[in-house]
Deep mutational scan, measured.
Amino acid sequence: TTFEIRVGDLRITLHNADEEEIRWAEEALRRGIHADEILRTLEERRR
């Protein structure tokens, strides 16, 4: 599944994310964390 998060002009697309990952990514985007860093962190958490 694919889920797109939008916060203002910012956007990130997550693939195969669970609800916790989606909530975490949305909050991180709101705090101004760059999408590349969010994706990198999620990848590390999945390992």
Rank of each mutant, 00 (worst) to 15 (best):
L29M: 10
A17F: 04
E37K: 09
A35T: 10
I22S: 04
H15N: 08
T2W: 15
L10S: 08
E27A: 13
L42F: 08
H15C: 05
I22Y: 06
L39F: 14
E26K: 14
E26W: 15
V7T: 02
R30M: 11
D18A: 08
I38F: 05
D36N: 07
D18V: 11
F3M: 14
T2M: 13
E43F: 14
R40K: 12
T2D: 15
T2N: 12
N16W: 05
E44K: 13
I22C: 06
A25Y: 02
T41H: 07
L14Y: 02
H34I: 08
R11I: 15
V7F: 12
L42M: 05
V7S: 03
N16G: 06
G32R: 03
L29Q: 01
E27I: 09
R47E: 10
R31C: 07
L29P: 00
R40C: 08
G8W: 02
D9F: 07
L29E: 01
E26F: 15
H34E: 12
A17Y: 02
V7D: 04
R46P: 02
L39V: 06
I22G: 03
E27V: 10
I12T: 01
G32M: 05
L10E: 12
E20R: 08
I5L: 05
V7G: 01
D36Y: 14
R23Y: 07
L39G: 03
T2P: 09
R11A: 11
R47G: 10
G32S: 03
A25C: 03
I38H: 00
R30I: 10
T13R: 04
E21H: 03
E21Y: 03
R31M: 14
R47N: 12
R45G: 06
T13L: 06
H34Y: 12
E43S: 14
R11M: 14
L29I: 06
R23S: 08
R30Q: 07
I22M: 06
I5F: 02
R40S: 09
A28T: 04
H34R: 09
V7M: 04
A25P: 00
V7Y: 12
D9H: 10
W24M: 06
D18Q: 08
A25L: 07
D18W: 06
I5V: 09
E37D: 10
A25S: 05
L14E: 00
R30Y: 13
R11H: 15
T41P: 00
R6W: 15
I22R: 06
E4N: 01
T41F: 11
T2I: 15
G8P: 01
E26C: 12
A17Q: 02
T1F: 13
E27S: 14
E44L: 15
W24I: 07
E44M: 15
R40M: 08
D36F: 14
E26R: 14
F3S: 15
L39R: 05
D9L: 06
E27H: 13
F3H: 15
E4T: 04
A25W: 04
E4K: 01
L10T: 11
R11S: 15
R31F: 13
E19A: 11
L39T: 06
R31S: 11
L14D: 00
L42Y: 03
R6V: 15
I33H: 06
A35R: 05
V7E: 04
E43M: 15
E37N: 08
L29W: 04
T1Q: 12
E44T: 12
R47S: 11
H15V: 08
R30T: 10
T41Y: 12
R30D: 02
G8I: 02
I12M: 09
F3Y: 10
H34L: 12
N16A: 05
G32L: 05
R47T: 13
A28M: 11
I5P: 05
A35E: 08
N16V: 06
G8L: 03
E26H: 10
R6P: 03
E27R: 13
I5Q: 02
E37H: 08
E26V: 15
L39I: 12
L10M: 13
R30S: 10
E27F: 11
R40E: 10
I5Y: 01
L39Y: 15
E20A: 07
R6E: 14
E21M: 09
T13A: 02
E37I: 11
D9K: 06
G32C: 07
A35N: 12
E4L: 04
A28Q: 10
T13Y: 04
E27P: 00
E19H: 10
A17E: 02
D36Q: 08
E19I: 11
V7P: 00
W24H: 02
I12D: 01
E26Y: 15
R45K: 07
I12K: 02
H15M: 09
E19M: 11
E43P: 03
D36K: 07
D9T: 12
T1M: 11
N16E: 05
R47L: 15
R46L: 04
H15P: 03
I22H: 03
R45P: 01
L39W: 08
R6G: 05
R46A: 04
E43H: 12
D36C: 15
I38L: 08
R23I: 10
E4W: 03
G32F: 09
A28K: 06
E43I: 11
L10F: 08
E19P: 09
D18E: 06
A25M: 04
D18F: 12
T2K: 07
V7A: 02
R23E: 11
R47Y: 14
R11D: 03
I5A: 02
R40Y: 09
E26N: 05
T13E: 05
R31A: 11
E44C: 15
A28G: 06
E21N: 02
D18L: 09
R45H: 06
H34M: 12
D9E: 10
W24Y: 14
D9W: 04
R40I: 09
R46T: 03
L42Q: 01
L14I: 10
D9S: 12
G8Q: 02
R40T: 09
F3K: 15
E43K: 11
H34D: 13
T13P: 03
E26Q: 12
E27K: 11
W24G: 01
D36E: 13
R31K: 09
L10R: 09
W24D: 01
H34K: 09
T1R: 12
G8V: 02
L14Q: 00
N16P: 02
I22W: 04
R45Y: 10
W24F: 12
R40F: 11
T41L: 10
R46M: 03
A28C: 08
A28E: 09
R11N: 07
R46I: 04
L29Y: 04
R23V: 08
T41M: 10
G32P: 00
R45T: 06
R23L: 10
A25D: 00
H15A: 05
W24K: 01
E43R: 11
E4A: 01
F3N: 15
T13M: 05
D9N: 11
R45A: 09
